[in-house]
C-alpha cells in the first residue's frame, strides 16, 4: 500500500487514573453542569426553538410549496410547455394545455389544468430549474398537513400567486 499519513488512535490499557473512575466522572459532570448553568444563568443559548410562537428563519432557498407566478395582468406566465412535467422525478405534475385565446401571437398555449400532487412531490426543485419562463417557483411554506389524499392535489387556483410577488414568502427560485 502507498505510504499514507496515518494517526494511531489506540489508547492502550486503561490507566489507573481512569480505572478509579472518579476523575472522568467528575469531569463529565462538570461538562453537563457547565451547560446547565450557562443555560440557566448565563447566555441562555438554549437550542430549542419555541415553535409555533417562534419560527426558525429558513433561507430563501428552502424548497416549500410551489407558486405559479403571474404576469402583470394576472394571467399565468406558464405556457404549458411540459418541461417541468418532464423534469419531475416523481411525475407528480399533470398539465393539460389549451390554446391561449388572448395571446398576441398564434399558437401560444396556456395550461387548462395544472395540478401538483403535493404528497408525491419530493420537493427537489427540478421543476423550478426546468421552467424556461420562471412560471413556477417555490415558497417557504412547508408547514402542511392534509387529512385526505385528494386534498393534497392542488390546482391552478391554489397554486397561483396571490397578490404582488414580493408579498409571497419566497423560497427556492432561479438564481442569477
Amino acid at each position: 500500500m502507498k505510504n499514507v499519513a496515518t494517526v494511531n488512535v489506540d489508547r492502550g490499557p486503561i490507566p489507573w487514573t481512569e480505572r478509579i473512575y472518579l476523575g472522568p466522572i467528575v469531569r463529565g459532570l462538570g461538562v453537563t453542569l457547565r451547560h446547565f448553568l450557562r443555560n440557566v444563568f448565563g447566555k441562555r443559548d438554549v437550542a430549542t426553538i419555541e415553535w409555533p410562537e417562534v419560527k426558525r428563519q429558513y433561507s430563501e432557498r428552502l424548497r416549500g410549496r410551489h407558486i405559479l407566478t403571474t404576469k402583470d395582468d394576472g394571467s399565468l406566465r406558464c405556457v404549458a410547455c411540459y418541461m417541468c412535467e418532464t423534469a419531475c422525478p416523481a411525475n407528480c405534475i399533470t398539465i393539460v394545455a389549451e390554446e391561449d385565446p388572448e395571446a398576441p401571437v398564434e399558437w401560444e398555449k396556456r395550461p387548462l389544468l395544472y395540478e401538483i400532487d403535493l404528497l408525491r412531490c419530493v420537493f427537489c426543485g427540478f421543476c423550478v430549474d426546468a421552467c424556461p419562463k420562471e412560471a413556477i417557483i417555490m415558497s417557504r411554506q412547508h408547514e402542511m398537513a392534509f387529512s385526505e389524499r385528494s386534498e393534497a392535489v392542488v390546482g391552478i387556483e391554489e397554486l397561483r400567486q396571490k397578490g404582488p410577488i414580493e408579498d409571497e414568502d419566497l423560497g427556492y427560485r432561479p438564481y442569477f
Binding site: A5, T6, D10
Partner: peptide, 29 residues
C-alpha cells in the same frame, strides 16, 4: 488517500487507524 479524487491529494490530513478492531476502536476512529 489511495485514489485521490476532487483534489484530496492537495489537503493535508491523516488517516486515523486503530489496531484493536473492537467497538471502542471504531468509536475512537
Amino acid at each position: 488517500k489511495a485514489h485521490p479524487y476532487m483534489g484530496y491529494e492537495n489537503y493535508d490530513f491523516e488517516v486515523p487507524v486503530a489496531t484493536t478492531g473492537d467497538t471502542y476502536a471504531r468509536y475512537l476512529v
